[in-house]
Structures are given as structure tokens and as C-alpha cells.
């Protein structure tokens, strides 16, 4: 019995808006912006989708993949910065929708884009302590960017859920390490409609410092080097930052490129690094070692090392790969996008 991931599932809304279309509205050079941020388009939720609905479908997919029944789930944590309610947990709706209530613990988490991996750490802790047999951590967001702001080009929507336990994992956990400071690079005050950010300050002292430090901390803790890893998923606020982080660490492109979902669905915030990790698991072979490093503004990074087991082959036919959702797409123009995202205020 080894601690690890028993199953995973994702959900990505089918609607897309391209960087070119957003740039057209703001009289910007779409070609140049798209190239600069290495993003083609982003996922947009349907008008009746939100963080709760996306989480439910991702969790249903993860549970089916794991083979567990809802009554075996002892904890559900939903990490997001776009919970539908300020007060009333998304996690209870998810638990009720999958039939896991009432004998479990559930809570919502918030830590910008790393709330989902914070949930993974909590579930790993509960399972390791034998308090629960299995639990689920979800990272989901329907991210909002202020119209005309740089964030509007990348603020996407999607969710990724991981079932964690000890019985026949598809990937075992080798260790985890976090690096956390008070760094004000991105925030949204209570009641504010859109988040604010500190521009270039989101780079070196924020994303890169935390991502690189968490990675190094994990390597030191486990006595591993980056050469020991076959696949990597870093948080993807855009398509350029994770590649720059990989370059700074000497990680070759082929180890990280499969994780770069951001190019086609944008930054899914709390789901971002977990979505990349899910796609790496879709493609992984038994025996491969995967590095997952999240980043949440404010700021912190959680790093994990996993080793893929033979179980992944057994369970693969029950999974819906990330690519199925990425390939399912319907393009919107800016007017429909504005309607989908509630940017048209009727009263």
C-alpha cells in the first residue's frame, strides 16, 4: 500500500476566444501578443457553467477513473479564486452531486492559482495519517480579466481533480515541498469585480523565485536531480513563463512541452499546473517520474514528485484524456464572450 493518485479527471468548457479576437477589440497587435505570451486561445465557460459545475464534472471523471465509489471518499477540497459564493462552500455542492455526503469533510481553499495543489497536500496528509481511506482535491477556476488588461488574453476556465489514496495508485507520491512568502504580485480585494496585478513584478520576485525555489527544495529533500525526471508540469500563467523556468533549471523542452495546455485553453488558474500534470499522466509510461510545481500569487509554490505505476495502463481506458476536451471547441467572437462572462450589465 503506497500513497499516491488513484485516479484523475479534468473538464474544460467547449467555448474559446482567440488572442487575435481580443486584440482586435482593443486595437492591439494580436499576432505580436499571441507570440509574446505563447497563447493561441483560451477556454470560456458556457453561460450556465461556473466553478461548481466544472468541479463536479472533473470530479465525476476522476472518480470513474479511480474505480472508487462515492462512499469511499472521506474528504473533498476545492481550490479556486472564483467560488460562486463568498460564503457557502463549492465543495459541499461537489460532494452532494457525486453522492459522497454526508460522512466526509469538505472545504473550499483559496491561494490564487495554487489552491488546488494545497488541497492535494491536505488530502495526502489525511490519507497518510490513516484518517481517511481516500479523498479528492480539485483545482478549478472561471478566471476573470479586466477588459483591456493583459490578463484578459489568458484568464481561462477549467478544472482538474485528483483522487488520492493508498490502494493501487497510478502514480505514487515520493515527496512534496513548499516555498511560501508574502509577495503582493496579484490580488483581488473583497467585493472587487476584477483582480489587479503588479505588472512585471509578477515575474522574477514572484513566479520564478517561488517556482524555482520549490523545485530546488524538493530535489534537495529527496536527493534527486532534474535528470531523474521524465516529465514536468509547472504553473502556466502564460505559455512563456513555464518555458523560461524550465530553461533556467536546464530542463529540456521535450520534458515540459506536453504539459503546456495554456496555449489552447489559457490560464486555468487553480487548475493550471494540475491540468498540465493530468496531460503528462495521459501520456506517461509506467516507471516515469513526474515533477509537478504549482504557483499561486501572494505567493507560494507546492512541488511534488510522482512515479508512475503499471496501474496507469489498467485504468487508462476509463479516463477521458485532456486532449478530448481541448479538441472539443466552439469559437466565440468578443460580443458573445462578453455575454458569456457577464461583462454586459443589464441593470
Amino acid at each position: 500500500m503506497s500513497l499516491g493518485i488513484l485516479g484523475y479527471g479534468v473538464y474544460i468548457p467547449r467555448y474559446r476566444i482567440s488572442v487575435h479576437e481580443i486584440a482586435r477589440i482593443w486595437h492591439e497587435d494580436g499576432e505580436s501578443i499571441s507570440k509574446g505570451i505563447n497563447v493561441i486561445e483560451k477556454a470560456v465557460p458556457a453561460m450556465d457553467e461556473d466553478t461548481a459545475t466544472i468541479s463536479v464534472t472533473a470530479v465525476q471523471n476522476a472518480l470513474r477513473h479511480s474505480g472508487l465509489s462515492p462512499s469511499e471518499i472521506g474528504a473533498i477540497y476545492v481550490g479556486s479564486e472564483s467560488h460562486p459564493y463568498a460564503v457557502k462552500p463549492t465543495a459541499v455542492t461537489v460532494a452532494e452531486a457525486i453522492g459522497a455526503t454526508p460522512h466526509l469533510t469538505a472545504a473550499d481553499l483559496e491561494f490564487a492559482c495554487k489552491a488546488g495543489t494545497a488541497g492535494m497536500q491536505m488530502v495526502f496528509g489525511l490519507v497518510a495519517a490513516d484518517e481517511i481511506r481516500a479523498g479528492i482535491a480539485v483545482g478549478t477556476d472561471c478566471a476573470q480579466g479586466r477588459p483591456g488588461d493583459a490578463l484578459e488574453y489568458t484568464a481561462g476556465a477549467g478544472g482538474a481533480a485528483f483522487v488520492i489514496g493508498k490502494n493501487k495508485p497510478i502514480a505514487t507520491l515520493e515527496g512534496m515541498y513548499s516555498y511560501t512568502t508574502d509577495t503582493p504580485d496579484f490580488w483581488r480585494r473583497e467585493g472587487a469585480r476584477y483582480p489587479s496585478h503588479a505588472g512585471r513584478f509578477t515575474g522574477a520576485p514572484s513566479y520564478f523565485r517561488h517556482t524555482l525555489s520549490a523545485t530546488q527544495g524538493l530535489l534537495d529533500k529527496l536527493g534527486l536531480s532534474l535528470n531523474d525526471f521524465d516529465r514536468v508540469s509547472f504553473h502556466q500563467p502564460n505559455g512563456r513563463f513555464p518555458l523560461s523556468a524550465a530553461k533556467a533549471l536546464g530542463i529540456p523542452l521535450e520534458k515540459i512541452q506536453d504539459a503546456l495546455c495554456v496555449r489552447r485553453i489559457g490560464n486555468t488558474y487553480s487548475a493550471s499546473s494540475m491540468m498540465g500534470f493530468a496531460r503528462q499522466l495521459d501520456l506517461a509510461k509506467p516507471g516515469e517520474r513526474i515533477l509537478l510545481v504549482s504557483y499561486g500569487s501572494g505567493a507560494g509554490s507546492d512541488a511534488f514528485s510522482f512515479v508512475v505505476t503499471d496501474e496507469i495502463l489498467e485504468k487508462r481506458e476509463r479516463s477521458i484524456p485532456v486532449d478530448k476536451y481541448m479538441d472539443r471547441r466552439t469559437e466565440l467572437d468578443y460580443a458573445l464572450y462578453a455575454k458569456h462572462r457577464g461583462k454586459i450589465i443589464m441593470k
Binding site: 458556457a46 450556465d48 457553467e49 461556473d50 461548481a52 459545475t53 463536479v56 464534472t57 465525476q60 452531486a97
Partner: peptide
């Protein structure tokens, strides 16, 4: 008629 459907969780 006959189109295959699946139920999905949404806001009502």
C-alpha cells in the same frame, strides 16, 4: 430524434 445525450451538471 435518437441523438445520443448525456446528463451534465449545470446552473439551473
Amino acid at each position: 430524434p435518437g441523438l445520443q445525450l448525456q446528463m451534465t451538471f449545470r446552473k439551473l
